[in-house]
Design a protein around this nucleic acid. Structure first.
Lengths: 193, 193
DNA sequence: GTCTATAGATCGATAGAC
DNA sequence: GTCTATCGATCTATAGAC
């Protein structure tokens, strides 16, 4: 192989640090100096891994996050099972993603103006895929197609809003409440079949 | 008076520009150069109005926004009237605040790390006051105190989340849907009296 | 109150040795 | 792959004339 195991480890640790920085401070809130401090790597090391600079780092993080969401939220939502099982798997993935409300949302942080358009569209797609998966799962478990999309949109909105409020007010319980309410609302969507 | 009418106009126009910049780009996303370009004022003019620099500008905007929310959302929510009238006045204020979903939320933008703590606490208080007002209005119109807070938190979360999703996906209709749903949920909170 | 000019720090990005 | 050293641009903030 062309890359040593150590390179992979370095790259993985770098990606983790980048993800954590970008999700909490947004694109413009993270400087190259912040990344060197967090990772211990020098400037040139960072530009060796990401020749495209900060833009490429942010896009790599966005793509990684979209893939994670696909594997841990979207796929479990679309997998076999009844309504309750699907929703519970989705909620579990989301709870892990946001660390029980203590971690902010990359999508909310990096869709603000200032981030490269490629990053913003990537994250917009990730969010749409999440909503669509919930919608499809509702329909697959007997919901009326006309109301499924609104219910999916409401659930995801409720969760994203809870993250904003938890951060602004410092009330971590607000996220748990939002997650529980989103779950209950999805389970309660009427079955027409 | 110590200040001429023209000063007041300059100050007001400056505040409007600052509010618009900070709500869309966040604290770190706005540079002094951005403000000079937007307002046409030189650097020293800005520091004449705000000797404390960018931090003082952000705090002034946060306080102004809190006062606006108090006058146009909190007070109308707490004013006399039945449940539906109060909720409708609240929703109207919020719709105006966010320009029908086209304008981002200052609270979401400026409670991110990087903004001065004074700004973050000011906006956290503003958000809490909004939620508390909705809660009090629900109780005053016959809702169970034990469930009123959860319902108020849910409604505000739904609205804030809709703003995030509208921006990330580019779907402006998501905000209108969120606002309508929040209204319906508040009106539907059971009356126990 | 507004201007020009600029200080001092930090920004993203690059060069070249090892 | 990682380092030191540095470039040019931009940042916040200030000085001083008008």
């Amino acid at each position: 192989m062309t890359t040593s195991p150590r390179s992979e480890n370095t790259r993985d640790a770098l990606m983790d640090a980048l993800y954590d920085l970008f999700r909490t401070r947004g694109f413009e809130g993270v400087s190259i100096g912040d990344i060197t401090q967090r990772t211990g790597l020098g400037r040139s090391s960072l530009y060796h891994h990401f020749p495209g600079g900060k833009d490429e780092m942010a896009l790599a993080v966005a793509r990684s996050a979209r893939a994670w969401l696909q594997a841990n939220v979207v796929a479990p939502t679309l997998a076999e099972g009844d309504r309750e099982a699907r929703v519970d798997r989705m909620i579990a993935g989301v709870d892990q993603l946001f660390s029980g409300g203590g971690a902010p949302c990359l999508i909310a942080a990096m869709t603000m103006p200032g981030a490269p358009d490629s990053v913003r569209t990537e994250l917009g797609s990730a969010l749409s895929e999440w909503i669509d998966a919930v919608c499809d799962a509702l329909i697959a478990t007997g919901a009326e197609p006309a109301t499924a999309h609104a219910a999916a949109l409401a659930a995801v909105s409720r969760i994203e809003g809870a993250l904003i409020i938890a951060r602004a007010t410092g009330d971590d319980a607000a996220f748990a409440a939002g997650l529980a309410e989103a779950r209950a609302a999805l389970v309660a969507v009427p079955i027409t079949a």
